[in-house]
Amino acid sequence: MLMKRLIVCLDIRDRQVTKGVRFEGNLPVGDPVELAGRYYQEGADEMVFYDITASAEARPIDIDMVREVGRRIFIPFTVGGGIGSVADMRRALLAGADKVSVNSLAVAHPEIVAAGAREFGSQCIVLGLDARKTPDPAFPSGYEVVVRGGRTPTGLDVVDWARRAVELGVGEICLNSIDADGVRQGYDLVITRRVAEAVPVPVVASGGAGNVRHLRDALVEGRADAALIASLAHIDGNSCRRLKDELRGWGIPMRQ
């Protein structure tokens, strides 16, 4: 039986892992390569590295860092931020990354994402999808897709966009609730479940984990295939192994 995954997310600014609240007020928490090595030893199933300032500074992702990470961890990892072309995707994948994550790029240039999926396979392309709750009836799912760290609304409905992205060739969706991100009150289970039930590809719940119960809720009530954590690892110092032991206690299949 396929297990659920616990993914540690490292947001990187100026070669430091940072942790913020709703994309603001970031605090440095450590060196990405050192932290990656530690989380690998502590049983993380997968990792994501977001170069959070690459897009804003219009520069490509830090490839040297990707190479160093590849020498330290022997589990799958995704890189995102600063992926603007098929050539950027190729560079990251050739440096040892398993997947690349695209967010604003998929909204602005869906054809680039489709070309990447054809070239490297859908399993290499993750859609980062930031969702914000809205009362506007123009959005049937009740959530709108936002980009640029939540600053820019797109007019796209979250479930519609998730389905379209899968048609483009995206092989996984990392669904981040902007309202819940960094607040540590739990994932948004409503939109997680709506997306997980709407698409045939794996869905990663992101944004809002404050304790292990929240992880359980995302994987069970939210029907997510994986749960992404940041503060739980960086700030609270929880080891993935201990979190997964607790999840296994609830009957959720997790890797030992």
Binding site: L2, M3, Q123, P200, V201, R255
Partner: peptide, 18 residues
């Protein structure tokens, strides 16, 4: 082939298995 009675089974088979 995805089983029609279980939408929770995703293709590709992606992740850790025993």
């Amino acid at each position: 082939i995805p089983p029609p009675d279980d939408p929770g089974v995703k293709i590709p088979h992606m992740g850790w298995n025993r």
